[in-house]
Amino acid sequence: MSLLSWYVACIQALLILGLAPLLIGWVRRVRAFLQNRRGAPVFQPYLDLYKLMLKETRVGHTASPLFRAAPYAIFVSTWLAAATVPLIALDLPTAWIADIIALVGLLALGRFFLALAGMDVGTAFGGMGASREMLVSALAEPAMLMAIFTLAMTAHSTNLVSVMESHLADGFILRPSYLFAFFALILVALAECGRIPIDNPTTHLELTMIHEAMLLEYTGHHLALMELAAWIKLLLYGVLLANVFLPWGVGQGLDPLTLGRGLGILILKLAILGVALAVGETVLAKMRLFRVPLFLNLAFLLALLGLLSHVILEVGS
C-alpha cells in the first residue's frame, strides 16, 4: 500500500461523486428516448443537486435531531461503501479497510438511518416506506450475501481486490456459479436501488412508493444528500456487476495511462448497463408489493444454485 495508491483511492472516491449523477442522467435519458420523450439532458442531475443545495431547508416541527443527522449518516456510509469497490485501479487500499461483507454492512447502516428518518416526523407515508424498505432489504440481503459467498468461495477471499485478482489470473472460464450469482446480483440491485419492477423511482403516487416515501419530508441540502446517496448506490451496484464479474479493463497499475484506460472502459461498461436498465424499466411493469417476495425468492434461488453449482460442479474432492 504505497502513498500513491492512497492518492488514487481518493481520486476514485471523488470520481464516484462525479460519475453517480452522470449514470442516473444517462439512464433517464435513454429511458426517455425509448419512451419517445425528449427527456432532460444527461447532465440534468448535477443541476438538480445544485438547485437543491441553494434552496431553503425546512424541517418539520415534530422532527427530532436524528432527522437532521440522518442525511449525513446515509450519505457518508453509502459513499464509504462505494469507495471500497475498485473503480478504475485494482490496487485499492480502502478495499482492505472494509471487505465485501463490511460493504454490505455499511449499506445496511445507511438503510437503517434512512428507515429511521422516514419514521421520524411521524407521518403515515414515512412509516409505510420504512416498513416496506425493511421488508425488501430483509429478503434481498441474504440473496446478496449468497451471491457474494459464491465469489468469495471461488476466490477464497472476501476482499474485492483479491476476488478480482484471482478472477483475472484464471482468465476466461465459464463458471455456472458466476452466471447464477451475476443474475442474482442483478435482481438484488434492482430491489436495493428501488428500480422497476420493485419500486418506481419517479413516482409520487402515494400507495406505491417505497424509497420516495421516506424522503417525502426532506428538502434543500438534506434532500440533495439523500438523492446523491441513492445515485451512488446505483453506481455502486453497477460497478460491482461490471468490475467484479468482468474485471477486464480495470487498471492493474497506477500510471496515468492505465488509469485513463480504466476510466474509459468503466464508463463504457456502465453505459451498457445503463442502457440495459433503461430497456428493462421500459419493458417491465412495477410489481405489486406482495409479488416482490417472489422476485427476491428467485434472486435467492439463483444465488443458492450458484453456490451449489460451485460446490457440486466446479470443485471436486
Partner: peptide, 10 residues
C-alpha cells in the same frame, strides 16, 4: 443558511 421549522408535508 438557517433551517426553518414548518409543519410536516405528508
Amino acid at each position: 443558511r438557517r433551517i426553518r421549522r414548518c409543519d410536516p408535508w405528508d
